[in-house]
């Protein structure tokens, strides 16, 4: 019983390969130190012309007061920035997730166009680690609704 049949041995090799492959993927794939999940606006701008027209993720905070939503064309324009510093203008289409609002963290997938606007194909909202009940009289999501409404008119 100490020796395995050929079928079992090859299955074992497959099993080990899956494990080793998974580890390799973890260490050298997506999470390689020179590939960060997203660039901040400052890092994107620091790349200069090399940043144009390549697929990249951009992460930052929605600049307060920058959101412009056109319900007719479903076009969404806003700017993202680091906590301080220069902002990058963003154009996206479609209604954003419900938590999207001024000051919220977002991660965008898309390309930085030569005209200085980041064309987002995917808009993800980054939630903080805070869970708070609404303050007295405040209704959840009202901020989102008023933002989207106010921005459109």
């Amino acid at each position: 019983m100490s020796s395995m049949s050929g079928r079992r041995r090859s299955a074992l090799v497959v099993g080990v390969a899956v494990v080793v492959g998974a580890f390799g993927f973890l260490l050298y794939g997506n999470i390689d130190s020179n590939v960060v999940f997203f660039l901040t606006p400052q890092e994107l701008l620091a790349r200069g012309p090399a940043a144009y027209d390549v697929p990249v993720r951009l992460g930052g905070l929605v600049q307060p007061g920058s959101v412009k939503w056109d319900p007719a064309s479903l076009e969404l324009r806003f700017a993202v920035m680091d906590t301080t510093g220069p902002a990058v203008a963003v154009q996206s289409s479609g209604a954003p997730p419900q938590m999207f609002r001024d000051g919220m963290g977002v991660v965008l997938e898309g390309r930085y166009r030569r005209d200085g606007v980041f064309q987002a194909t995917e808009l993800m909202v980054k939630h903080s680690n805070e869970y708070r009940k609404p303050e007295h009289g405040e209704r959840p999501q009202e901020m989102y609704r008023s933002l989207m409404k106010g921005a459109g008119t």
């Binding site: 099993g15 080990v16 899956v18 494990v19 997730p97 995917e122 909202v125 939630h127």
Partner: peptide
């Protein structure tokens, strides 16, 4: 999906969790 806006993205937390799952699927088949 409703909070972030996506079902999945390859961020390090999600990716490493998927790797964890794969390793233990490998463990069980082993």
């Amino acid at each position: 999906r409703p909070t972030w806006g996506v079902w999945w993205t390859w961020d390090p937390r999600l990716t490493s969790t998927a790797v964890l799952l794969l390793i233990f699927v490998g463990y069980l088949s082993l």
